[in-house]
Design a protein around this nucleic acid. Sequence first.
DNA 1: GTCTATAAGATGATAGAC
DNA 2: GTCTATCATCTTATAGAC
Lengths: 196, 196
Amino acid sequence: MATSAQIIEIAQEYVQKVGFHAFSYRDIAERIGIRTASIHYHFPTKAHLAMAIVDRVRYATAAAVAEIEASVASPGERLRRYCGLFLQTWGSGDRLCPMCMLAMGQDAIPAEVQGGVRDFWQGGESWVARTVRAGQATGAFRRDLDPRSVGRTFVAALEGGMVAARAFSDRTRMEDVIEHLMDSVKAGRTEGASTV
Amino acid sequence: MATSAQIIEIAQEYVQKVGFHAFSYRDIAERIGIRTASIHYHFPTKAHLAMAIVDRVRYATAAAVAEIEASVASPGERLRRYCGLFLQTWGSGDRLCPMCMLAMGQDAIPAEVQGGVRDFWQGGESWVARTVRAGQATGAFRRDLDPRSVGRTFVAALEGGMVAARAFSDRTRMEDVIEHLMDSVKAGRTEGASTV
DNA sequence: GTCTATAAGATGATAGAC
DNA sequence: GTCTATCATCTTATAGAC
């Protein structure tokens, strides 16, 4: 594999495990067996490296979502598969979502990186919202749902669920969250007034 | 205010804004107008400081939840007030949940701190689960809900929602999440089979 | 592309005076 | 409790040889 690709991959792993500020060029260099100066050749500053990670993750996510849309037609199944992406990321070695990690250190992260993270986040929310609308059209999902709110809740809960799953090294924390999320959108109930 | 209390308060603010690894004793010292050596007198290592933050937050949270239980009886209203605590934290200057911040940098954070963070998280999940059971008993909440899953989803979504609200400086991201969460538990629908 | 060498500054932490 | 002084180490980053 090309050195630059190796650098990005290892840096991404560090971002997912300890965050952007808790690893150094030295950490990466030692893992690959090169010197920090070589990393600076590929990525002049840490901001460049962060941006490369953002681009890589957004590309990979877009590909994964495209694959879901190509192989599954049912809105419910699409949503479940989407949730599965987050579960899969956590499963690949107790890793958090790299975009969530970058979003947390916001104030100490380059502006362009922040923008990329926001695009990723909003992209997920919008995709879920669109899928919810499709499910409402087929009658699979509750008609009284606000797609925007559901999209935002799905992404928020999946990201937060990963934090919990990692803190407890407990897969069921992700699974429980996904079950309740899926349950919250499915039809099969009369839409009535609340008694709360 | 006592110096140690000032130190904890400022350190907590840094944890909420940039994370545990992105601030230094120097940052705190300059804000207070003392030297880093003085901070080391109160908190020998950064781990001690982190632990003090965890204790402070857990104490404050317990007090806030107790206040809710003392002033509100309805499970639905209690849940909504609980969600309000997270909204309020974000509102106090675009801050994330300190426990969520500490949970993210897990691998690079002292073991005792990790334990405290887990206790906080699980405490929130359990409280929501208990409140859900109470709401099911009164008929305000859906009877087919799994309280554990709901508890885990609430905490995950609230934590994740704060990350989103901060990334976009957008209050509605928290509000939308809270609305869908509350909607997901309320009764008023026939409990039927899913068509998803 | 990778190296050595180096810079300039930050970091957590300690010893000992006041 | 706070200070000065100091430490060893780590950090991002650059210059220039190979």
